[in-house]
Design a protein around this nucleic acid. Sequence first.
RNA 1: GCGGACGUGGUGGAACGGUAGACACACAGGACUUAAAAUCCUGAGUUCGAAAGAGCGUGUGGGUUCGAGUCCCACCGUCCGCACCA
Length: 872
Amino acid sequence: MATERYNAPERETYWQAVWESGKLFAASNTDTRPKCYVLEMFPYPSGRIHMGHVRNYAMGDVFARTKRAKGFNVLHPMGWDAFGMPAENAAIERKVAPGEWTHENIATMRRQLRSMGLSLDWAREFATCDVSYYRHQQRLFLDFLAKGIAYRKSSKVNWDPVDNTVLANEQVIDGRGWRSGAPVEQRELTQWFFAITRYSDELLDALGTLDKWPEKVRLMQANWIGRSEGMLVRWAVDPKSAPKGVTEVEVYTTRPDTLFGASFLAVAPDHPLAKAASARNPELAAFCDDCRRMGTSVTELETTEKRGFDTGVRVVHPLDPTWQVPVYVANFVLMEYGTGAIFGCPSGDQRDLDFARKYDLPVVPVVMPADGDAATFAIGDVAYDGGGVMINSRFLDGMTTTAAFDEVARRLEASKVGTRKVQFRLRDWGISRQRYWGCPIPVIHCATCGVVPVPLKDLPVELPDDATFDAPGNPLDRHPTWKHVACPTCGAAARRETDTMDTFVDSSWYYARFTAPDAATPTDLKAAAYWLPVDQYIGGIEHAILHLLYSRFFTRALADTGHLALSNQAREPFGALFTQGMVTHETYKSADGRWLLPEDVTISGEGDARAAVETASGTPAVIGAIEKMSKSKKNLVDPDDIIAQYGADCARWFVLSDSPPERDFIWTEGGVASSGRFIQRLSRYIDQIAALAGVADKPDIVTAEAVALRKASHRAVDGVASAIEGLRFNVAVAQVYDYANALQTALAKAADGQAAPDLMWSLREAGRYLLQMISPMMPHLAEDGWARLGYNTLIANEPWPTVDQALLVDDTITVAVQVNGKRRDELTIARTAGPAEIEAAALKLDAVIRALEGRTPKKVIVVPQRIVNVVV
RNA sequence: GCGGACGUGGUGGAACGGUAGACACACAGGACUUAAAAUCCUGAGUUCGAAAGAGCGUGUGGGUUCGAGUCCCACCGUCCGCACCA
C-alpha cells in the first residue's frame, strides 16, 4: 500500500483557515465551564519572530489546547508590547516613523505567529502603542496620582550630556552612556515615581502564597525587596563640635547588639551633616565633590578605594554619655538607603574594619563565636560578623547576640533615642523617560497652578505623529506646538509634561486588559474578576524581577484605585508562573573571524573529528560554543524557513522535545529533520489504520496483541496528559514516541489484513487516541488525521479521551529481587500476591540461592508491587 | 562577599527513596533497492568473558537507610541572581 507523503505546509494552511473561519478559539466572558487563562509574555515587535518565541508560544499553546480539551473555558490571547527605544533608534537610523516601523513589524510577526497554528483568540489582540490602549493607561495614571500612588520627586539620575537624556543603570557602561560614549553625570532631576514601596510588606509576604511559581523567582524577588529588621538610633552631636543647625545624627543599623564596638560614624557625602560641615571646611567640601563624581558602575564600585574624611564633628554614644566617637564622611555610604548614616563596628564588619585600620580607629571585639574564649578572642585582618556571645559590652556580656539585640532595643526605646525599624531595599519606581515612543504622562505644568492633571474629558493625550528624530534629546520637548497648552485650571499658557512612561508600565496591566479589550474603562470589573488571576503564565527568566514585580504591584494599585474588584487574598496577577529556557545553537566563525550563518556552513565528521567549512568558498571554518541564538553571532534559524520546509507541527514538536522546558534548548539541523521524519511516520500509521476494515461493534478484547495495544493506548493518553499538566513537555513527547513504537508492533501484526476483530477494533481506537494525544503538540497533523479516519468533527473541539483505569494496571507484575541491596533477579507474580507469597517465591529463585551462598536471611523486606530485598 | 540552581552513556535527557540509562539524536551491522533517499530489523554504559555470568558504575569523600542519582554534611566544578544595603 503506497501512502502519500504528508505535505505539512499545505495542510497546515488549510486547517488554520478552518479554525479561523469557525472562530474556535474565541473565549467567552460568560460561560458555565471552569475558566482557564493561559498567557505567554507578549512579544516586543522587534521585526521577526525568533525561535525563543516559537518555544514560548508552543508551550503555552500545548497547555491551552489541553485545557480546552479537558472542558475549560480557555482564554489565550496575544498582543504587542509595542512602545520602546528600538523604534526610535530605527527612526534615527532609517528615517522611518516609530509608529510605522512598529506596525510593519507587528504585521510580519502576526503573520508568523498565525503560521504556527496557535489556538489564540485574535479578536482580543491589541498593541500597547494603540491610542485605545494607552488612553486607559493615562486614566490609570491620573487615578494613581489622586491616591498618591503616582508622585513627583527630585532624585539623582544618570544623565547623558550628549544625548540629553536620562539613562537607566543598565544603559551606563563603565561610567559612559551606551550610545554616546560620554561620561555620565549624576544629576538631580524631578521625575515621576510609582509608590511601589507602599506595598513592600505585602509584596514580600504574598510571595509565600505563590506556590506555583519557581522557587528561584520568589527568592530573587524577596532579595530584591530586601527586608531587614533593625533600629534607628539617634546620636546627639557634641555642641562644641556641631556645625550650624546640626544637633543629632540618626543612623540605621541591623546590629544594635554591637553598639559597644562602635568606633566611628560615617555619613554619605550628600548627608545634611556633611553639607553643614563642608560649609566651614573647604577641604571637606572638595572631598564630597570628589565622591559625587564617582561612578556607579559595578566595576568602579569594586575597584574604588574606601575613603573617608573626618568632619571634626563628635557624637555621643547613646548608651554612655561620656563616650564620644568621630563622624566621617565616607564614599561608601549611600544617601538612598536607611538614613544615609551608619555607625561603624570594625570588629563585626569587614568594611568597617578596613576603614578603621586605614584611619587608625579602635577595634574592639564585641561578639565571639559561642565556643570561643573571651580571654584570647581577637580580631586580626578578618572581622567576625556571625552570631555568638557578647564580650566587652558591659551589661550585655555573656548574652547571645539575639538577646543583646532585644536588650539594647528595650533600653534605647525606653530612653527615646532609638526605635525598631523595618527597612526595605526596594525603591520607588521611577517611570519618567525623556523619550518620544512611550505613553505620554497626562499632566500639565502651569506657572501659577503647578502640576495640573489633564482632565478626564481631555484624554487621551496623543503622541504627535510629526515628531522629528534628527537631533538628540526628547522629540516631544522640541516639537514646535505639542507641549504648548492652556492650563486646564486657570487658562493661562502652560506646558505639557514631555516625559513618557517607562515601557514596563505598559506591560504591567495588559493581562487585565485582555479580559475586556474593548471596555470603555481601563478594565471591566466583572470580566477581570472572572478571568484573573492568569492560571498559567509562561515567559523568560529575564523578567524574574522587573516585569513580574511591577505587575504584582500594579494588581494591588489597580485594586486600590477601583479598577479591579479582587479580594485581598487574590491580589496576585499570575497564579502559576513557568520560566522557560533559551533556544541555543552552535556558533561558526570563518578563518578570518567573521561570524557565519549555520546555513552557510557545511559540517563533516563527528565527535572530536567534526569539522566545518564555509560552503561557498570551501575554506575551513571554526566551530564555536553553543550560545543563545542572536543576530550578532549569526547562529540564528528563522522560524519561517523551518515552517516552510517542515511545517509548524515539526517546529513545535522539535522545540518541545528532548530538553526539559526550563532548561536551554539546543537547536540542531539533525534534530529538526528527525522530528520531520516522525511526523511522516505518524501520518503513515494513520493511513494504515484508516485502510483497515471496520468492525461494527466492540468485540471482546481477548487476543494478547489487542490487550497489549489497548493498555498501551490508555497508558499513553494518561501519561501524556499528566506530563502536559506538569509542563513536562519533553516527557510527553517521549511518551508519544514510546506509544508510536507500540503501535508499530501492533500494525505489523495486522499487516496481512487477517488480524482478529478485537485487534482491528483496538487499532481503530489506537488511531483515535494517538491523534488526540498529539493534538495539543501537532494540532494540524491531528486535524488532518482525524479527517482521514473519517470523523466529520474537528479534533480541536473534541474532549480529551477518557482513560479506562482498569487498563492501567496489570494482572501480573514484575518486582526486582535484591540480596543485600544488590539486584540479583526479577520475579513475575500475580499483582494480588501477598508479602508472604512474594517472599517465598523470591527465596526460591536460583540467583537468590546462589547469592545467599547457604546463609540464612536475617530479614526479608517486601514492598508489594515494587521490590524484594533479602538481607543476610 | 551574599544567595540559589545544577553535575547521569558519544549527545539531549528519563527515573513517587525501590530493576539507573526510558525516549530521542548520533553510531554500527543487516534487509529492501541497479543505486541512493526513504523505510524496516538488530546492537550498544563500562571492564572481564566465546557464552552463561560476574565486577564496576549517576562530579569527589563521608553519613542516614534493608535499599540513595534522589535525603543530610563537606569538598570540587559549571551556571545564574544580587552586591559599598549598614
